[in-house]
Design a protein around this nucleic acid. Structure first.
Lengths: 149, 149
DNA sequence: ATCAATTAAATTGTGTACAATTCAATTGTA
DNA sequence: TACAATTGAATTGTACACAATTTAATTGAT
């Protein structure tokens, strides 16, 4: 409880933090070919599944708020990947739509997931288990953060 | 291989990315009491283990470079948590040392790891397994990123 | 119908991240 | 011993994150 509890290597959170950054770093050269960043890639993943959603919906899928999304979506619009327009029914909402360029990028991106974990020393079953545990924790943490507990 | 491969929920990387941010968000109120951020907390964790190391060494423990560390360490010095001074033997190196305030913060921080996973719905064994898998992946990814493969 | 709450984005300000470059100190080698 | 190569930090420029605030549109209760 005293000393080893406070050691870096013991911290699950550090493992998450560092692994996420190394993973993102590994994505970078692949995504550079598409002229996007990793968070922008996540936005595209959502839009490829469901085009024409609001900033709010996008945020709830990605656990991001408008403070992060607004400037990011503007950059993506500047790069002609998406379009942003106010909803006609509710002027508060901004609807995000894929451009033709944004739609086409899907084919180029199809190979990315496979290329990513290439050469990474980890069993598929172990990775699957990892993902399930993470998603469970994510849900649990998000609920706690929501209710401000 | 076509459509489901590219879905958000399937992406281990998204699970990492989102869980890390929710975890950091959960740390925030606890660390605010110490007037530090999560990355700054990691710096302190390293220094509490081994005081008086260089920026380089700190970076290799945390997988961060001087571009991130230099401004962060300056802020921590401004807040009187650490001191930065050029090494006498090798003027290129900057040695980072804990101040009395920085040392004292260790006691206040002792309770943090326990408080953190409180209320998080996850078995200790599962979390332990998660950490091991992550650290293995981290090492593997870092080597690949290092050699620019 | 009116006006106080609520909601959706945008904005502001601070703090990471990181690639790429610069600069000064040190090392290795001809 | 010069001096090119290397090394450790700092700097520059871009892109997230996110708390807190602001603004405009919509709802809901009276």
């Amino acid at each position: 409880m005293t000393d080893q509890m406070i050691k870096l290597e013991d911290q699950i959170c550090f493992a998450l933090y560092a692994t996420t950054r190394e993973m993102t770093k590994r994505y970078r050269p692949l995504l550079e070919e598409l002229n996007i960043t990793y968070p922008q890639y996540l936005v595209l993943l959502v839009l490829w599944e469901q085009d024409g959603i609001t900033v709010k919906e996008l945020g709830s899928r990605l656990y991001l708020d408008s403070g992060t999304l607004t400037p990011m979506l503007k950059r993506m619009a500047d790069n002609d990947l998406i379009e942003r327009k106010r909803s006609a029914e509710d002027e508060r909402k901004v609807v995000v739509t894929l451009t033709e360029t944004g739609k086409k990028a899907k084919e180029d991106a199809a190979c990315i997931p496979a290329r990513l974990l290439e050469n990474v020393d980890a069993e598929p079953a172990e990775v699957e288990k990892l993902k399930d545990t993470l998603m469970k924790m994510l849900k649990s943490l998000h609920e706690l953060n929501e209710k401000g507990e």
